[in-house]
């Protein structure tokens, strides 16, 4: 049964075994990824999926697990590494044994691990653009805004900030950042205080970007307690479930994130395509079943624009 969007011939190809390894097993986010992966394996019909990962926060657990599966000749190992470097030797070993290796959700050191592709859930540009566009939609292209980030050295957040600034300059030249990004570390209380200070210092502030799963609830709480819901927009990145209370209260209109179900789905599609040779160096697009054609840039498969969770749909998501 050839699924829609997949080229002819795929379904008849021999069954393959894919080992998919999350950072940690049993948490909402990765459960959602697993659901998507199972959906893709079923739709393809010729993929046997083993979804297994560490059940405790132990530095070495992924290595040991993956090494065990190397011995039993799986076809593809797809991993979301806890650490980009310490996972490298075992992935290299898998590559040396002729096993395909891809990463998803988080990348491994590409040179040292020899991984072939990274299924990237959201490029920095896409995230930056989605955040800024959302702010412009809520507060207009001339909004005065501030950013609450996690820590000033966080690689992901810095890449997003760079992309946000670039997109503002290009598309909304009159949108103003009232100050440099403020750090909140991984501390929701600090995020709350930082946002409170911003509201006091800049009385004409239109919106706050809160770009970590800790900063977002902290900032939303500050705006809500200052009774500025609706006047000051809070736009940010986080998993939807913890943000639901502020969306329901109307303080937050939109939560931006990728869809982890789709991420799992795309990963299995990519694994199958890799074995079939339809995903190889130089490939520009990947036919990924119900997700349609995904863009491939270099050695990264892009999941596409981030997803928006709003009051209408946020209740449907359990992660």
């Amino acid at each position: 049964m050839p699924p829609t969007g997949t080229p002819e011939g795929t379904a008849s190809a021999a069954k393959i075994t894919v080992l998919m390894v999350p950072k940690l097993k049993g948490i909402d986010y990765f459960n959602a990824c697993e659901r998507g992966a199972r959906e893709a394996a079923e739709a393809l019909g010729n993929v046997e999926l083993i979804f297994d990962g560490p059940v405790e926060d132990k530095a070495d657990a992924q290595n040991q697990l993956i090494d065990g599966y190397i011995a039993q000749q799986v076809h593809v190992i797809a991993v979301s590494p806890n650490d980009p470097d310490s996972i490298a030797p075992v992935l290299k070993k898998a590559r040396d044994r002729g096993i395909h290796v891809i990463t998803w959700d988080a990348d491994a050191n590409p040179e040292r691990s020899g991984r072939e592709f990274f299924i990237n859930q959201a490029s920095a540009e896409a995230v930056g653009q989605a955040l800024v566009d959302e702010m412009a939609a809520q507060k207009g292209p001339e909004a005065r805004v501030a950013i609450v980030t996690s820590s000033l050295t966080a690689a992901n957040q810095n890449a997003w900030i760079k992309a946000m600034k670039a997109h503002m300059a290009a598309k909304y030249p009159r949108m103003t950042l009232v100050c440099e990004p403020k750090p909140s570390e991984e501390n929701q209380q600090l995020a709350f205080q930082v946002a409170q200070d911003l509201l006091k210092t800049y009385r004409d502030l239109d919106g706050v970007f809160a770009i970590s799963s800790v900063a977002f609830p902290g900032a939303a709480d500050a705006v809500q307690q200052a009774k500025l819901s609706g006047k000051v927009a809070v736009v940010g990145l986080a998993t939807p479930k913890p943000m639901k209370q502020w969306v329901d209260a109307g303080t937050v209109k939109t939560v931006i994130l990728w869809n982890p179900v789709d991420l799992g789905y795309a990963t299995i599609q990519a694994a199958r395509a890799l074995v079939d040779g339809q995903l190889a160096p130089g490939t520009r697009t990947l036919a990924a079943g119900r997700l349609g054609n995904l863009t491939v840039v270099g050695d990264q498969v892009l999941l596409g624009p981030p997803m928006k969770f709003t009051a209408e749909n946020i209740a449907q998501y359990d992660f």
Binding site: A59, D60, N63, D85, P89
Partner: peptide, 16 residues
């Protein structure tokens, strides 16, 4: 031996 095996020196080595 651990450092050599995982090729990384990180403070979470040996957890649990």
């Amino acid at each position: 031996i651990y450092l050599s095996r995982v090729a990384t020196a990180k403070a979470d080595a040996g957890t649990l």
